[in-house]
Design a binder for these strands. Structure first.
Lengths: 135, 135
DNA sequence: GCGTTTTTGACAATCGTTCTCATTTTCAGA
DNA sequence: TCTGAAAATGAGAACGATTGTCAAAAACGC
């Protein structure tokens, strides 16, 4: 879908497996988790390939990448367009949130300081209702 | 200054060296960079100690930690209170920015979804005027 | 000073991720 | 359908940042 141009890009069993898995699981998962899930499903895909495929998907903008404090980066298939995430620290439940005001604020602030080619990262962490009640 | 309570915490040459260095350098630097700077100054401090000290300072809230996409975490001594950073991708120049509207927006969004104990991370990346002009 | 307790630091270990490269697969054309 | 060049795979090595280990060294209350 989001295959710009240039490098050929061939259809392989492994890529389909990763894409399919991503379309079926909820929330964010690490490359290693996804690799383990594929293994459990009986799909035979190398860890290296999982990493490569995830990176390609991320570059293409088909999946989101998040780097939580403390370790591995997490991947998730998500809706098109720019948005951010509200993530539960305990259960990992994720809510996509849009903040047009934040986008324009960030751009404006950067512009005021003479910065161009601006991007930003924003993640909100908290404890969701269920997890807060559960203890 | 921000030494709560509990564990003793002793004054050592190494900790002073790290703290002093942090108060003198500009912008964000990795633990390894800071370690190299100390070495260049003739200060003899082990890399392990640099990591430990930085972690302690970060826990105490005396320094900021940032995880840019693609690698090591960066440390910086910075002003008290909650704020965010506008960072040049090329030269590392950093501007502290405050966004009260963003803070309240994030809290409000989280609250609407039933999340409590909310925190967030926000970093803005761009190319500063000088770097944009320089090439 | 003394002794206890913390801290240090060289080194090994760990962990996520990337690289290497020989083998396998894909797919456009014959 | 067959063929072959180009792309993709994957097992394992390599890598780089960070953390653990533990004996030796420093700090500080007494």
């Amino acid at each position: 879908m989001t295959t710009p141009q240039g490098t050929a890009a061939r259809n392989t069993r492994q890529r389909s497996a990763v894409a399919t898995l991503l379309s079926q699981v909820e929330g964010f998962h690490s490359a290693q988790e996804l690799h383990a899930m594929l293994r459990d499903r009986g799909e035979r895909v190398g860890l290296t390939t999982v990493y490569r495929t995830l990176q390609a998907l991320a570059d293409a903008g088909d999946i989101d990448v998040m780097r939580p404090p403390g370790g591995e980066q997490l991947f998730r298939r998500c809706s098109d367009g720019h948005h951010h995430h509200l993530v539960c620290r305990t259960c990992g439940r994720t809510v996509e949130v849009a903040g047009p005001a934040v986008e324009s604020w960030a751009d404006r602030v950067a512009e005021q300081h003479g910065f161009v080619d601006v991007s930003h990262t924003l993640e909100i962490f908290g404890t969701c209702r269920e997890c807060a009640a559960g203890r």
